[in-house]
């Protein structure tokens, strides 16, 4: 049977999918066991570790103090996200230059950060905001078994909720001190709830594994916030998608939102 899986992976999958089950024992809508923990990196100002089945990502946030430039202040962002898919997570990635997939994911994550509506005042180093905190979010994939999008979005939101910034004191205009006794967290007004799907022929698989992603003809990722508003929707693939499938996918994610919310919240309590 292993040989059959290696030589004809698609035919192998089709035999399973026709019976509405996947080779790893899940049904088409089943999502692998998801776990989130925070605060693993003590030297970072916020961190999280997310595991979806065998996919695991670690996320750390580094903070820097900087003076904002006063040009187009509306467009400025204080959070920069970078996702790294290194050779450690899978043999398809090389260490030399970031893959296209990593770049595209990074840009999606950077746009999602803006959906969190974090007030500007939260980044103030001092009282007036002459000097600001800048946060650099680094997400590393340790083990790649599909659905990196969901894992990295969950890692991003839970590590941002974990951020503790010290109070800043400025003396003599250019001497900066940190008061590590007084820590504060960011005020994050929204949640992000992601769910990805892979479409293999006519079957829609929630939370695809690595092999399922490779066999799939199209991929769909939806991210909603707690008000059921779309934050990110990306669909691309060889086969077109119908409106009804989109609507069904939204329903599947809606059913999962409560669970994800409790998962993100309970990860903060330790």
């Amino acid at each position: 049977m292993e040989a059959f899986q290696k030589i004809h992976p698609l035919e192998f999958y089709r035999k399973f999918l026709q019976r509405s089950v996947r080779p790893d024992g899940r049904s088409l809508n089943d999502i692998r066991k998801t776990s989130i923990s925070t605060g693993a990196i003590t030297t970072a100002c916020g961190s999280s570790f997310v595991k979806i089945g065998n996919t695991s990502v670690i996320c750390g946030i580094r903070s820097e103090v900087g003076i904002p430039s006063f040009e187009n202040t509306d467009q400025q962002t204080n959070i920069f996200v970078n996702l790294e898919l290194g050779p450690i997570c899978s043999n398809i990635y090389s260490s030399t230059k970031p893959s296209e997939q990593a770049m595209s994911l990074s840009s999606k994550l950077n746009s999602l950060v803006k959906r969190l509506d974090i007030p500007k005042e939260d980044f103030y180093f001092d009282q007036e905001g002459k000097v600001l905190w800048y946060l650099y979010v680094d997400i590393y994939c340790l083990d790649y078994d599909g659905n990196i999008m969901d894992a990295s979005i969950l890692a991003l939101i839970s590590s941002l909720k974990n951020v503790k910034l010290p109070r800043g004191i400025i003396e003599n205009t250019n001497e900066y001190y940190k008061d590590t006794e007084q820590l504060r967290s960011l005020q994050i007004n929204h949640y992000l709830f992601p769910l990805s799907f892979s479409i293999i022929e006519d079957f829609i698989l929630s939370d695809p594994s690595n092999q399922e992603e490779q066999l799939s003809t199209s991929n769909l990722t939806i991210t909603l916030n707690e008000n059921f508003e779309i934050c990110l929707l990306s669909y691309s693939g060889i086969k077109p998608i119908s409106e009804t499938i989109l609507q069904e996918s939204f329903e599947k994610l809606k059913n999962r939102i409560e669970y994800l919310k409790s998962l993100i919240d309970s990860a903060q309590e330790h």
Binding site: S111, R115, C231, L233, S234, Y235, I241, S242, L246
Partner: peptide, 10 residues
């Protein structure tokens, strides 16, 4: 049917 779609923002 939709071939490609990317929606960003709330």
């Amino acid at each position: 049917q939709i071939i490609m779609n990317k929606t960003e923002g709330t």
